[in-house]
Write a protein that binds this DNA or RNA. Structure first.
Lengths: 170, 170
DNA sequence: CGGTTCATGTAATACGTTACATGATTCG
DNA sequence: CGAATCATGTAACGTATTACATGAACCG
């Protein structure tokens, strides 16, 4: 249900085409709400159908630029302020942890080590992203920075946990 | 695809009915891989159909006790060791953070405060869960403890981040 | 004997992924 | 003029949620 709100949120900052929005999802929202091309175009048509967005311009190659409508803005604000955020995260990574007794001790340690490495790699990426953002060439909002910082802290936590967890298995 | 492996993992520790498994999902796996009753029974039938589990006993009230088969164990281990964990989480909570500029500063602060409170509450719950586990009455595996510790650290991180984030908006 | 718990299933709907399909325009 | 990029869409399939539906057995 939130792809819809991701699109509304982006369109609230200005008109854009499906193609533009896809790029935005790939760049800024990739870690928060990934979406496929297919899903995105379908949802745009649904949103236009229900009047939350509308085509404001048409360009070359069938390009359709969408703008958010008043009722779209209302829906966005309603979602922001009234709809309680859902706290359900599925994690196949953690699910495996529950079943580590099914493999050998060395297998378990190597799995946890791997998790640590992956998290460390993700952390590095986010750090270079922050440097890029801080250099000023890219204008990420204050709020984008908050989200980025969340990612940084989360990854650090995971790196530390993975190290700790590996040590527990002896 | 991982509900399947959650079921296999639980059945690897001993036979159980759909009803039993549902309780296990609600208790131990609720924070890692929530599943509904409907989904679970459907998946059990699929698993039995493909020979990864089998009915080992039938009880009162149509109770069917399932056991994992050799090929089920093989599939579980394959998933544990060969299939790379997916690192894709969607978070409507963070998505909202990206769009906080759409509401007032006070609205934004109150949202972040709320996130902190929710995380703090979750943290408390996990802490009492740990106490319960450590008291020894309940026998959670070493690996369950690792997952629990992950949850604790994650929640602490979120509490701290929410406080920090709220201070950034002035 | 009546309410709770045990126990299993189906149907409709929504959301997400992968693959398929097509074509216009720009740029070198 | 050919490759890359821009640009949009559909179809099939798998997974997840909600609601509906049913009934046996246990316990007080």
């Amino acid at each position: 249900m939130s792809l819809r709100h991701g699109l509304l949120g982006l369109l609230a900052e200005g008109p854009a085409s499906g193609y533009d929005l896809l790029k935005s999802f790939e760049l800024s929202l990739a870690n928060v709400w990934p979406a496929t091309q297919s899903q995105l175009y379908t949802e745009l048509n649904k949103l236009a159908g229900s009047g939350l967005i509308e085509v404001v311009a048409e360009g070359a190659r069938g390009r359709k630029e969408y703008g958010i409508t008043e009722s779209g803005l209302a829906e966005l604000r309603h979602w922001m302020t009234e709809v309680p955020p859902q706290q359900v995260h599925r994690s196949d990574m953690l699910l495996r942890v529950f079943f580590l007794s099914q493999i050998t001790g060395e297998g378990a340690r190597s799995y946890l080590r791997h998790l640590g490495e992956v998290a460390a790699k993700g952390l590095e990426e986010l750090e270079s992203m922050r440097e890029f953002v801080d250099s000023g060439t890219e204008n990420l909002s204050v709020y984008g920075r908050l989200a980025l910082e969340y990612g940084l802290r989360l990854h650090r936590t995971q790196v530390e946990w993975a190290q700790w967890a590996e040590e527990q298995i002896r």
